[in-house]
Design a protein around this nucleic acid. Structure first.
Lengths: 249, 249
DNA sequence: TAGAGTTGTGTATACCCTACGCAGTAACGC
DNA sequence: GCGTTACTGCGTAGGGTATACACAACTCTA
């Protein structure tokens, strides 16, 4: 089961996540399951960070031996991909808003909320385009939001990747770095302010005139909500998309 | 030298990269240097990928013992950060274009070119806002491009982070995944087409109507240049920024 | 010249992933 | 009913990782 494929070219564990690959009734009844393994791994990542997820730790959590896991997953990378899929969860149900922009904004916020619930997910290395069930389901919903626009299908996908990439990036900056600081015990009321103070020490007005000018306004010292950067970026991107949508109709 | 700081709160190795921290004339003359260590590590990453960079491998490349490196770097993370800084290199010299949009577009392409030269750089984990010399120099130049706009300083920084995040994300999708496939020997003339074929097998029209519709157009199968997604995303984002710039003047 | 601080090194610890082979179990074909 | 077959879980072992710590050699300072 570990290395075989059945036409998709996907790893066996991911085919299993899609529900393909029914159990062949031969051997002893499995005491483990892919789902339980992924759940355990997610639990570890949620409490101690992605770095704490090791095969032995996951196995210990489940009360089995380390090597048992390799009956369900052929390498740790696959487990990580499945963890990421679990972090996304299914996209919000129901019909998206009629207006593409509000629908798509909802979609972006929902995705961001998933990352907020599972900050470690942004650190799962990306090795291929999305091919797990929930990833594709989120893609489906994103496309559905753009249904009523006149964008070409290729453009819709491009918009999707643009925005999902943005959400992921922004989530890393906000949730992941924040979670790391929290784990280290630092309160980090305002990382922005600390960064500004650091830059002030490193830069001189001669070699870094623009940076110094920016620092001098003191604007970077003001805390600002954790959502500010997200709102700003999303608005800019959607303004740009809106221009394209208008041009196409 | 390893754990001390001198007011900035930065790791000693990064202070050293800034040129602070002169050598105390006491002990034996160092045979190594931070620069040589970083260069060796960059060489390994360029030929065998970031995963091949281990402290022992870097030391072997330099003909020294593994532990010598820790006289210059207090942890591997610091080495990675310095590698990333080396990958960026200094930003392009000279005055940016007068028009903010062409100047900023140049800036984004130049950054992309840096990632193209060092695809592994996108996999260096981000743990803090940019604080290395070249990162800050790139930031300086980005701000300089936006000088003539009426954006507030905070908005300029936000635009900078938005675009640099986009470039990084797009570079990972394009260069890094491509480099990984190349290393595995797969030619991957068109990963997009392969992905489309995979989705066709995984999705049914009932649960995934929008995806199926997108696939049915066959638009995803057409290869398209490696720059297409980058151009598309950058144009959308800059259109959005332009709307803001216009609103502010 | 004694002291102090710095450099490179060797050893040792504590992990990590995973290849391989084995024992036990349950269904299938005869 | 009985082999055969295929699958489950596990123990061992090998080769890799980062890095803490103690120590000898070296060079400048007092």
């Amino acid at each position: 089961m570990a290395t075989e494929e059945s036409g998709t070219g996907l790893p066996a564990s991911i085919e299993a996540a899609w529900g393909l690959r029914e159990r062949p009734g031969k051997g002893p009844r499995p005491g483990l399951s892919l789902g339980r393994i992924v759940d355990a791994a997610v639990g570890i990542a949620s409490s101690d960070g992605l770095g704490a997820v090791s095969m032995s730790r996951v196995a210990a959590e489940l009360g089995v031996s380390t090597m048992s896991l390799y009956r369900y997953v052929s390498a740790k990378d696959e487990l990580l991909i499945l963890m990421e899929d679990a972090a996304y969860g299914p996209p919000p149900p129901g019909e998206p808003a009629k207006d593409w922009r509000t629908g798509f904004t909802d979609w972006a916020w929902a995705l961001r909320a998933a990352y907020a619930r599972h900050p470690w997910a942004v650190n799962v290395p990306i090795s291929a385009p999305p091919s797990t069930p929930n990833s594709v389901a989120w893609m489906e919903r994103g496309l559905a939001c753009l249904r009523r626009t006149n964008l070409s299908e290729g453009e819709k996908i491009s918009v999707l990747m643009l925005v999902s990439g943005f959400v992921r990036n922004e989530a890393r900056m906000t949730f992941d770095i924040l979670a790391a600081h929290q784990r280290k015990g630092e309160s980090l009321e305002s990382s922005m302010a600390a960064w500004a103070k650091l830059l002030e020490k490193l830069t001189d007005a001669e070699r870094f005139p623009a940076v110094t000018a920016a620092l001098r306004t003191g604007e970077l010292e003001t805390p600002g909500g954790p959502d500010d950067e997200f709102v700003f970026g999303l608005e800019r991107i959607l303004d740009g998309v809106e221009a394209l949508v208008s041009a196409r109709s």
